[in-house]
Amino acid sequence: MLKGLKEYFKIKGKNKFQITVRHHVIFWVIYFLFTTFKWAIYYNDFRYAFESTLLGFSIHMTLTYFNIYYLMPKFVYTRKYIIYALAVLASLFVMLLVKFNLTYYLLSTNVWPEGPETTELTLNYAIQTMLGELYVITFVTAIKVTIDWLKEHKRLIDLEKLQLETELRFLRSQVSPHFFFNTLNNIYSLTIEKSDRAPKTILKLSELMRYLLYETKQKRQSLKKEIICLQNYLDLERIRYGNLLTINLNISGDIEGKKIAPMLLLAFIENAFKHGANKNVGEIEIKIDFNIVENFLYFRVSNPIPTKINHNVLNDKQGGIGIGNVKKRLELGYNKEDYKLEINDNDVEYVVDLKIKV
């Protein structure tokens, strides 16, 4: 399971929000060209603008990467905000001294050509220069934080989607083990009796198991295939209960091209046998109706409430798929307006009515 998650996120990590070296290069080249031409127009001196921008460019990059890859992970992500603010101010002050000296000794003794002419480190020059550097740091940091947020947001969405898919697969897998246990016991009895029904029973069980293993992985399954699966299930139950069981199955409407969540309806039918046929002494009748009207399936299954309870049957507390399981699957797999589930339990019968989009 963990290996699967790692592989999943290894693939998902290669997304459009990934920052590569190419993106860094493109950003700084654009920034460098924009700044150079801006000051070239201001100074009316392209060479000086190029040299001053190149000098400031190295300081911008150093401060920016120092902030987003060292200061923020070390202090912001650990909620040490005061220390972070002091570290940024200290970095800006060190940058100020470096820029002043490099400009003074390499470019011009007038360290502030765009402001009042000065050859000294004045307070006004210091404030304006530090604010300019802070602007660059803030701008680049905002881009980094935004992209990180988008990556994290996508990761959480992918994780939520994976969890939902995993939960749905788990819920679909919970067919009652007692059903298979009882069916195998029936097959054993038939083989002891050398009954001609044994091969047919094995075939039905094989078809049902093949469907459950290989045909229920997708989000939606053909309603036609789903009904065939249910018919195989009902055939096995008929073999189990013999003449004591009567099943009235009615299908109306066009089932071609209709799709439904796999094994969803099986839960209600299995529940009818669990609480109806399995606990009842004597003859039992289970009614199942499929009625397709336009894009909706109207499904009903009903079983009588036992008047005489068979105390010899195994008390299956774990149940099969269970109604709670189905309600969870409906919530995860369908919008609220796409289904309506009603369950009525009176003194005579237990009735499930499901309207669902197909």
Rank of each mutant, 00 (worst) to 15 (best):
M1T: 09
K3W: 11
L5V: 08
F9C: 01
K16P: 01
F17R: 02
I19C: 03
H23M: 10
H23K: 11
H24E: 12
H24V: 09
I26W: 07
F27H: 10
I30P: 02
Y31N: 08
F32D: 06
L33F: 08
F34H: 03
F37W: 11
K38S: 12
I41W: 12
Y42Q: 14
N44E: 15
D45Q: 06
S52H: 10
T53S: 15
H60L: 04
Y65N: 06
Y70L: 15
L71N: 01
F75T: 10
L86K: 11
V98L: 15
N101Y: 15
L102F: 14
S108R: 04
T109I: 08
V111I: 15
V111D: 03
T118D: 09
T119F: 08
L123K: 10
I127F: 13
Q128K: 14
M130E: 13
G132E: 03
E133R: 06
V140R: 05
V140C: 11
T146H: 04
I147A: 00
L150H: 04
K151W: 07
H153A: 12
R155K: 13
R155G: 02
L159V: 00
K161L: 05
L162K: 07
L162Y: 09
Q163G: 01
L171M: 09
F179A: 08
F180V: 11
N182E: 13
T183G: 07
L184Y: 08
I187T: 07
S189T: 12
S189V: 09
I192T: 01
E193A: 14
S195L: 07
A198C: 03
L203V: 08
E207Q: 13
L212P: 01
E215M: 02
Q218M: 09
K219F: 04
R220W: 13
S222V: 00
L223C: 03
K224C: 01
K224F: 03
L236Y: 05
L244S: 14
N250I: 11
N250A: 11
I255Q: 02
A261N: 07
P262L: 03
L266H: 02
A267W: 00
F268R: 02
K274T: 14
H275W: 14
N278A: 11
K279P: 05
N280C: 14
G282I: 11
G282Y: 06
E285Y: 01
E285F: 03
N295R: 14
F296H: 12
L297Q: 06
R300W: 06
P304T: 08
I305F: 05
P306K: 10
T307S: 12
V313A: 04
D316G: 05
Q318H: 15
G322C: 03
G322M: 00
K328P: 01
R329F: 02
R329Q: 10
G333V: 02
E342I: 12
I343L: 10
N346P: 08
N346L: 11
E349D: 15
K357P: 04
